[in-house]
Design a protein around this nucleic acid. Structure first.
Length: 711
DNA sequence: ACGTCTACCGTTTTT
DNA sequence: CGGTAGACGT
């Protein structure tokens, strides 16, 4: 078994998988078989009786990574791996808090809130504190709170540094803490902080897990923030072997609090660490790797690692200097069509960009060319308003004191409970330390409401009470169906006959489907409804492209991390956009942008296209752009220029003929081409056209003579 | 309670 | 330019 396990690994991977007891730091370059090493390591430990299944804890950053690890482990381990503790920091924290809710100072029914719910709570706090949203943007306060939690600080522990701004932020944080406590809400950062405090305050609980987990494995270690690392340090007891896997060159989440320095810190904090570098890449051609290595080499303070491959040299990297974003999109479209005609599947191609706004032009061009595409990111399933409404009903039924849920659906569908009534409820709730639900009951009993409002509130309360028996059932899908019917959310959205309304009803149906297919982790001890609700918050519901789905993949460079595609287009390589102008001035900003560039390039297996636009519409105006500095960091020998970048000429309207620079035109003899330059006027007006057909090259044509047709 | 108008803003994002 | 959030009017 064991030798079979090692068969398809290279010698460095074998060294990592079979490393003797002790701590391990694996520096795993892009495409070097990181997940493979992690899963084989676990399988190795189990197969050689070096660890019991329940003494292994594997932590990942995303649910997708956790699922993948479990799935791939199952392929190499000859027994059921469903009971292994594999999960994200957050899901594991959630699990621990569900077990130790009492010791953690929570109510048994505590609810996880996502950042949107958190934002609403922060705004409520601002109203409470009489702070003007213009002066104290809720986003900023939310950011402040999360940043403090991420370094392990409670409001009472944050220093104001005699700074008025900080003092107010701390006041907001403090009031937010109180609101979370009274509504039993736990935000994402709170999950981690609570567990951290639980372990700090309950040594016997910590000792239990320290003894239990003899092996702790952490994926994407460069993405861990301060509290996550503190967590690892706490949990790793004297008998725990820690294995961290990461790549400082792929640290692209510094702006979110991730500390790639944790990699170096790990070496300082732990003695007898074996460091192993996985540098053989199994993904890309030599050309792509050499180019990517050259770019990342411009960063200083690297741990030092250089990818190599046994793959062939491969094709040169294509570089296209477009006139504008439309021209760029058309170039990409052309390449996709060509590749497709040569048998490359759409799903083997990905277009990567720095910011989401760039996707629109690409979409338009792909749509027009009838090329199927799929965009990652954007609004996720569980973030849709109708889905959140439906889930809020479940949440309120699970726990009537869930204020976040109460606020969301008390008047959804509209039942005559307006802002005034709601504000009355909020005031009473705050003054009497009650939940909104309790406040509503109190006001009803005291007959303190206006008659209209009273009837409406009463109606709502009766509805919820009547629905409550339903959540005792075990089938979540049928539970959902009944609730959606009786709370009239269904009929409310069905009234909307527009396309949007239709989509909402479809989404609600899809939610029932999701519930039907929901099967909680084998190792969760939660009641099904609680498990379902937690999953809805903790799992974005972002699915990978279905197998066989024939669509070009569009996504940001950030969301491309961890993925690979035979053909990759990286577009918008312009100063100001990539590297982004807001990053350039930050401390590590430029280096992080460069890592992002490295991540993007190393997604490509066979062929990489790079492009930039010399002019781009931004915020409604056309801006001149210079090629990204990253392009000049790629040695020329790896690049093939698809079109010489010409000196930029402002977009002139050659009015008589209606041509624009960068326009696509067709010539009866030479075929399709792009207008590169323009000179003269009247009968002498000439345009320079670069034809798609390389043999035709670039030609100057007299407009009045050549029968050019705009496309 | 809902539609229309206006002001504002504009990286990356998982949990 | 295009989306969104809030104000304002019906």
């Amino acid at each position: 078994m064991s030798s079979q396990l090692l068969e398809r690994l290279n010698s460095v991977q074998v060294a990592a998988v079979t490393a003797p007891p002790g701590h391990l730091l694996i520096l795993a370059g892009a495409g070097s078989g990181k997940t493979r090493v992690l899963t084989h390591r676990i399988a190795w430990l189990l197969a050689n009786d070096l660890a019991k299944a329940n003494s292994i804890l594997a932590v990942t950053f995303t649910n997708k990574a956790a699922h993948e690890m479990r799935h791939r482990l199952q392929q190499v381990a000859p027994y059921d791996v469903r009971h292994l503790w594999i999960g994200t920091f957050h899901s594991i924290a959630h699990r621990l808090l569900r077990i130790h809710w009492q010791a953690a100072g929570l109510l048994e029914t505590f609810q996880i809130i996502d950042s949107d719910d958190q934002y609403r709570l922060v705004r409520r706090v601002l109203v409470q504190l009489n702070l003007d949203e213009k002066h104290w943007p809720p986003r900023q306060a939310q950011w402040f709170i999360n940043a403090q939690k991420e370094v392990g600080l409670r409001a009472a522990e944050v220093e104001d540094e005699h700074d008025a701004f900080r003092r107010t932020q701390i006041r907001i944080y403090s009031a937010y803490e109180a609101l979370c406590a009274s509504t039993s809400s736990v935000d994402f950062a709170e999950l981690l902080l609570r567990v951290h405090e639980l372990w700090r305050n309950s040594p016997e609980i910590l000792a239990h897990y320290q003894t239990r987990f003899t092996h702790l494995l952490v994926d994407e270690f460069q993405d861990t923030n301060a509290i996550q690392y503190a967590w690892i340090r706490q949990l790793a007891g004297v008998n725990t072997d820690v294995m961290v896997v990461g790549d400082d060159d792929q640290a692209i989440y510094g702006w979110r609090g991730a500390l790639a320095e944790n990699l170096a810190q790990f070496l300082k904090d732990y003695s007898n660490v074996t460091t192993i570098c996985l540098e053989q890449n199994y993904r890309s051609t030599q050309t792509i790797l050499h180019a990517a290595n050259a770019v990342i080499a411009k960063n200083s303070d690297r741990l030092g690692k250089e990818l190599w491959t046994e793959e062939e040299e491969g094709e040169a990297i294509s570089l296209y200097a477009a006139f504008d974003e439309h021209d760029e999109a058309r170039f990409i479209r052309g390449c996709i069509q060509k590749a497709s005609s040569q048998g490359v599947a759409y799903s083997a191609m990905a277009i990567l960009y720095r910011s989401n706004a760039q996707s629109r032009v690409l979409e338009e061009i792909l749509l027009e060319a009838n090329i199927q595409y799929r965009i990652y990111g954007g609004l996720r399933f569980f973030d849709r308003a109708e889905i959140r409404d439906a889930l809020a009903y479940l949440r309120l039924l699970y726990n009537v004191n869930d204020d976040t849920a109460f606020e969301r659906i008390v008047n959804q569908p509209p039942r005559g409970i307006g802002d005034k009534t709601l504000q009355q409820l909020r005031d009473v709730a705050r003054d009497n330390a009650l939940s909104l639900w309790q406040a509503a009951r109190k006001l009803l009993e005291e007959r303190a409401l206006a008659s209209r409002a009273s009837t409406a509130i009463n109606h709502f309360i009766e509805l919820i009470v009547a629905l409550q028996p339903i959540v005792q059932q075990t089938q979540i899908d049928s539970m959902l169906e009944q609730i959606l019917q009786r709370c009239e959310l269904y009929s409310f959205y069905k009234k909307d006959r527009t396309e949007k309304g239709l989509a909402k009803v479809e989404n609600l149906d899809e939610l029932v489907n999701v519930a039907k297919e929901f099967n909680p982790d084998a190792n969760t001890d939660l009641p099904p409804l609680a498990a379902f609700l937690a999953q809805a918050v903790l799992d974005s519901g972002e699915k990978e492209a279905a197998i066989g789905e024939e669509a070009v993949q569009l996504m940001t460079l950030h969301s491309a991390k961890g993925l690979e595609f035979p053909v990759v287009f990286m577009c918008g390589l312009e100063e100001g956009l990539f590297p982004h102008y807001l990053s350039v001035n930050e401390g590590d900003g430029l280096a992080e942008e460069r890592r992002l560039c490295y991540v993007g390039m190393t997604r490509a297996m066979k062929k990489l296209y790079l492009s930039y636009a010399q002019s781009r519409q931004l915020h409604g105006r056309s801006e001149r752009k210079q090629a990204s500095r990253f392009l000049s960091e790629i040695p020329k020998q790896y690049l093939k220029k698809e079109r010489l970048s010409s000196t930029f000429t402002p977009r002139i309207n050659t009015s008589e003929y209606g041509f624009h620079l960068g326009d696509r035109v067709r010539h009866p003899l030479f075929g399709e081409g792009t207008i590169l330059a323009f000179e003269g006027s009247g009968d002498h007006a000439r345009v320079q056209v670069q034809f798609v057909d390389f043999e035709k090259g670039t030609k100057w044509l007299v407009c009045s003579f050549a029968k050019l047709q705009t496309l």
